[in-house]
Design a protein around this nucleic acid. Structure first.
Lengths: 126, 126
DNA sequence: CAGTTAATTAACTAATTGGTTAATTATAGA
DNA sequence: TCTATAATTAACCAATTAGTTAATTAACTG
């Protein structure tokens, strides 16, 4: 009953949050492929309609585009759709590089008891 | 009835696939904060237990760590948990950079009708 | 101890997700 | 036209997600 439509970034990340879908993207990174080409490696684990649903998720997220070629539906990777997600992650790069040393060191220089808690919430101490 | 445990990357991406959780990370990027500090901007839209659940998702994904400080639970961002996701995305960088020009150009040099379809699936043409 | 603040847990619910099988549509080819 | 292949749609189901309210745990404070 809430938030019927996902924002763009959420849609991208949740499309990526599935190993089957990431595998599909990996395959398409090697070139266009039809639905049944894509499906082939998965058909031991999953039905074709199951796979079709995954493709639909990827398509709605803009990560792939499906075209028509006779009775086939060649899909291709649309890497541009990863741009925003990648930019979002980029903001945090500093937190997985060098942050270990620098941030840890910084925290150790602080009084070990007063690290957080208040900051903007110290009211009522009188 | 399947796949009871998510793989690491899926867990990371699905943790990121929610605007509330991304906002929490953004706030923690500015420094440690207690649960109620974090909650404050969201309490007009969501109950505290609702927020606690989001924190639990982030914690399980390793994106934050919760410690204890008297009756508070200071949380801090664990940027290292984004590393694998960022590396995964990195594989596709070529597809959102330069790919527009180069790949489009490449595709246009091909015969416009024979783009895909077969490749490993051309059987039965005799 | 009584009261207050911080946070979590429990129990419930509606919507979404990820899968299925069966049926249907679309195209090609003999 | 009949048949085979390609793919989607429909209808259904179980599990998960994201939220709620109410109750509970934990720690401090006067």
């Amino acid at each position: 009953m809430k938030n019927l439509v996902q924002d763009h970034l959420s849609q991208t990340f949740s499309a990526l949050a599935d190993p089957t879908r990431r595998a599909i993207l990996a395959q398409l990174a090697k070139g266009e492929a039809s639905v049944s080409d894509i499906a082939k490696p998965f058909l031991k684990d999953m039905s074709l309609p199951g796979l079709t649903k995954h493709l639909k998720v990827l398509e709605k997220a803009g990560l792939i585009t499906k075209t028509r070629e006779k009775q086939w539906r060649p899909c291709k990777l649309n890497g541009a759709a990863l741009k925003d997600a990648a930019n979002w992650m980029e903001q945090y790069r500093a937190f997985w590089e060098e942050s270990f040393d620098r941030l840890e060191e910084y925290l150790k220089t602080m009084a070990p008891k007063v690290k957080s808690k208040g900051k903007k919430n110290d009211r009522k101490k009188k």
